[in-house]
Computed example of a mutant assay.
Amino acid sequence: MCETSSSICSSPIGDLIISYCQKGLHSICQISTINDQSFIPDENQTIEIQSSSGKIPIPKSCLNWLHTYFHSPNHLAKIPELCPNIVSKNDSFQENVWRTLLNNVHFGQTVTYGQLAELAGNKNAARAVGTAMRCNPFQLLVPCHRVIRSNGDIGNYSGGKRNNVKYWLLNHEQK
């Protein structure tokens, strides 16, 4: 079991909760109060630690990656280390989908659920891809916002509660 710490950081899409241990990140997501009604993006908002708990400082690689994603995306580098206890190297379909998305769908690109299922090795598993996206603990890093429906609709980001966030992220990546 990992000894985890967490931090809340400001970002252009609102405050993010980041959980991590010595081995890497456990999760990154927006605070629970952000939804389509409360979402007020601020492109000029810097990445700053608002608060932290636990013994381990937030990995600088995470802060640097977030800053680059929002403010200098042409210079994006490898994502921060993910804790192997969260994303193991086993062969679960869900983790395979996350790795496939991370490695094959780059900044500014989109992919349909069906295309991602095929890339992940099971062309008939579009619904399972949707489940993997819903369970993704690494918002932005494993870019589930880049997965759309085959008809071009964005789908239901965060269960349909943060579709405006998904629109914003997709637009941000098209600039």
Rank of each mutant, 00 (worst) to 15 (best):
E48M: 04
S150F: 00
I34L: 10
W98M: 14
D153P: 00
S158N: 10
L76H: 04
N151L: 05
E43V: 00
A77N: 09
D36S: 08
S6Q: 15
I18P: 08
I148R: 02
Y113N: 05
S92F: 01
C2F: 06
N151W: 01
S92H: 02
K60Q: 12
H172C: 07
N122C: 14
L66M: 12
P57R: 09
Q94A: 02
L116F: 07
T112L: 07
C83D: 11
D42V: 03
Y113V: 03
A125W: 05
A125T: 11
R149Y: 05
Q50C: 10
I58K: 01
S51P: 05
L63P: 01
G54H: 08
I17T: 14
S19D: 13
Q94V: 12
N104I: 13
R162N: 01
K89D: 15
N64W: 01
Q50F: 06
A126Y: 08
G24P: 09
V111F: 07
N122V: 13
K23W: 14
K89T: 12
E118D: 15
L101I: 11
P41S: 10
L119E: 07
T131E: 14
N104P: 02
L119N: 09
L82R: 05
L101S: 06
K78H: 09
F107C: 13
F70D: 00
L119Q: 14
C21H: 06
K175G: 11
F93A: 14
C2D: 15
H71Q: 04
S19K: 10
V147K: 01
I28W: 03
Q45P: 00
F138G: 03
G121I: 13
I56T: 02
W65R: 02
R99K: 15
P143T: 07
I56A: 01
K123I: 14
I40D: 04
